[in-house]
């Protein structure tokens, strides 16, 4: 339970960590979008180099980044298999009912790389940005939606609270498990049905305590006169610094490079 890695922030002092979260959010978004336009090996080469440069700058151990990659391995595998065998074109290898075409191999490789880079980019962002900063950036980024009466502040507040509660609830889960195991409960025995049933003594106290905590939090917020986002100022307002402008410029250069490469080949 200790190993939970949602909001998998890695504490460090790299230039990427210091950037304004808006820069990282926007650039990651743009990076992901441009990946979907990339259709030749050169573009993928450039995108890969850029991604790895970011990993280097972030000073996050590669081991930690790779751990996040495991989740997409299965998805990537399926994508590769489908593309490899089901793309029509010039036949490279043929055996039994399977045929591998040159186009198929190329698409499969690019698809896998695209998935890999997608996850890599978002991992680098979440590893270098605290969940709270990310939520701030989202709130700021979604501000225009206010015109359509979207409760932007409330959504952002709900997200930060949810994120804040993850470690609390995971710790609580561990305590409840211990308390029930002390009464002879076993969570890892028997068939699926028995296991599901064994979760009841864990889930009931967890729900009860979540509701209690939510009530307490609401009271504490009201006691401090919280009344939504209207007229609310921030402790750490988001302000662009010179390094953020530089980061935007660097990213714009990369983006221009990508567009050129995509158009040329």
């Amino acid at each position: 339970m200790r190993g939970i890695t949602i909001g998998q922030y890695y504490q460090a002092d790299s230039p990427l960590h210091l950037l304004d979260p808006r820069v990282k959010l926007l650039c990651t978004l743009a990076y992901i979008i441009i990946l979907f336009f990339a259709d030749n090996p050169y573009a993928y080469g450039l995108a890969t180099i850029f991604a790895f440069a970011m990993v280097m700058i972030s000073t996050v151990p590669v081991r930690m980044i790779l751990r996040g990659m495991r989740a997409v391995l299965f998805l990537a595998l399926i994508t590769v298999l489908f593309n490899l065998f089901l793309t029509p074109g010039d036949v490279l290898v043929e055996f039994w009912i399977f045929t591998i075409t040159r186009q198929g191999a190329q698409t499969a490789a690019m698809m896998a790389l695209r998935l890999f880079l997608l996850v890599l980019a978002s991992s680098v962002m979440t590893l270098t940005t605290t969940p709270n900063k990310l939520t701030d950036a989202l709130e700021r980024g979604m501000r225009p939606l206010k015109i359509f009466r979207v409760p932007v502040h409330e959504i952002a507040m709900m997200m930060s609270i949810a994120l804040r509660f993850i470690p609390i609830l995971s710790e609580e889960t561990e305590k409840i498990m211990n308390a029930q195991m002390a009464r002879g409960a076993a969570f890892d025995e028997g068939n699926v049905l028995k296991r599901a049933k064994s979760l009841i003594p864990l889930l009931v106290p967890l729900f009860v305590s979540s509701f209690r905590r939510a009530g307490d939090l609401a009271l504490a917020m009201e006691a401090r006169c919280y009344h939504g986002g209207k007229g609310r100022t921030r402790l750490h307002p988001l302000r662009y610094a010179t390094r953020d402008v530089i980061a935007y410029l660097v990213f714009a250069a990369f983006l221009a490079g990508m567009i050129v490469v995509i158009r040329l080949f």
Partner: peptide, 10 residues
């Protein structure tokens, strides 16, 4: 017996 009975009553 752990500190918080809330952790075991269900």
């Amino acid at each position: 017996v752990f500190q918080y009975p809330e952790h075991q009553l269900f």
